[in-house]
Design a protein around this nucleic acid. Sequence first.
RNA 1: GGAGAGGUGGCCGAGUGGUCGAAGGCGCUCGCCUGCUAAGCGAGUAAGGGGUCAUAAGCCCCUUCGAGGGUUCAAAUCCCUCCCUCUCCGCCA
Length: 427
Amino acid sequence: MIDVALLRSDPGGLAESFRRRGLTVDVDALVLLDEERRRARAAAEDLRASQNRAGKEIARLSGDEKVAAIAAMAELAEQYRTALADADALDFRFESQWMPLPNPPHSSVPVGHGEQDNVEIRRWGELPSFGFDPADHIDIGERLGIIDMERAAKVSGSRFAYLKGQAVFLEFALVQWALGRLAAEGFTPVVPPVLVRDPALFGTGFFPGAREQVYAVGVSDGEGNVTSDDMYLVGTAEVPLAAMLADEILPIADLPMRFAGFSTCFRREAGTYGKDTRGIFRVHQFDKVEMFAFVDPERSWEEHEYLVSVEESLVQALGIPYRVVDVCTGDLGDSAAKKYDIEGWFPGQGAYREITSCSNTTDYQARRLRIRCRGDGGTSIAHTLNGTAVAVGRTLIAILENNQQSDGSVIVPEVLQTTMGRDRLTP
RNA sequence: GGAGAGGUGGCCGAGUGGUCGAAGGCGCUCGCCUGCUAAGCGAGUAAGGGGUCAUAAGCCCCUUCGAGGGUUCAAAUCCCUCCCUCUCCGCCA
């Protein structure tokens, strides 16, 4: 949620921020509605104040005087009830328009309509050259017997996979290694709940906007009737990590607070029919280590650069060639003010594809979740940031495709060899 | 799943319709006092919203006693729904 102060102090700048995102928002109407609701609120509060004063008076009276005073109060009580209902209705109208508005992008964010307008800001690594036609991860995985999508489709439908054998050890080595590196950086490792209630999704900005991307759970009577439990499977550990400190006031001296959450992630991938259908690049379920930081609002931009640098150091250590892109306004999520994606090189596709994503959501999520910090200058809304440390599926693809050998084997990245207990995946 | 008890300020805890944003204690902050420490004395110590205003200070008002609704002139206190915690029983591991 955007700070309403912005609507009052700089409606023009706010309108411009929506234009940059390619949205048409009637900011002037919002300004008027905001004024109207405040007038209504003030009117209701004045009546309430009279009622409170009279109430204290009544407490002092007795007998006929008291009876008379109480009778005289009935009308005021009714007026207050009406005024309060008016104010509440206007608040509701305002909030329902205000809540869904996206975070104003940082001034440095490139303006654009979609992925194609993202701006590459740096590259790292040499693209591998093979003396043969590189296979894609599915061919490699099937040959090694470590990825089985056909049977997964039988059991769960499309966009699911069985990881087997050496892929399992590779996953756990990746996770173990990443958590170790992050713990050494001062991140607190967390295994959060992956099933959450409504407010966690609202607080992080996924609801109401992205409802169709989230799996809800409930009980079925076996005849197609499902009663919702009002519980939802998270699409990223960002949700339970952010909501973990909801309603709390953090001493500014304790900031930044950094967490590394490991979780399975569930995504419906609605609206992606026919997109990335081959392999495990886009699946309904995958595991991920996610970084999350609660920071002093003055420090969130340096934290953003820091988190990206951590992401890069991980990808570099794995030896995956990549580029960093500054995600354009049209491709930013609602809650992000700025986002960097790391796109790893996928020889099987001959393209750079997203393997991590790092957002500064400034005060947008924190305001919804009421996460504040307290310093010498009083309390203020904290800033929150999130970034992928290791998205297991996509990292696996990058490793398989970049490290494939002519004999069908795959070299295990050096940093994982000890944990895995082997240096090569073989059929 | 069944039965019961309970959720009050940073913490403990009193408060069953009005003078209660809330006794008392602890903690914390500042000051005094004191060879040091401890003790003692005094004062202060929630968050959010609105008005005035320079979106400062100050002042004024409103809201918040798990959440939401209701009864009432008036609700921490009465009623309903939900959430959470604890105890016992059952069930599962």
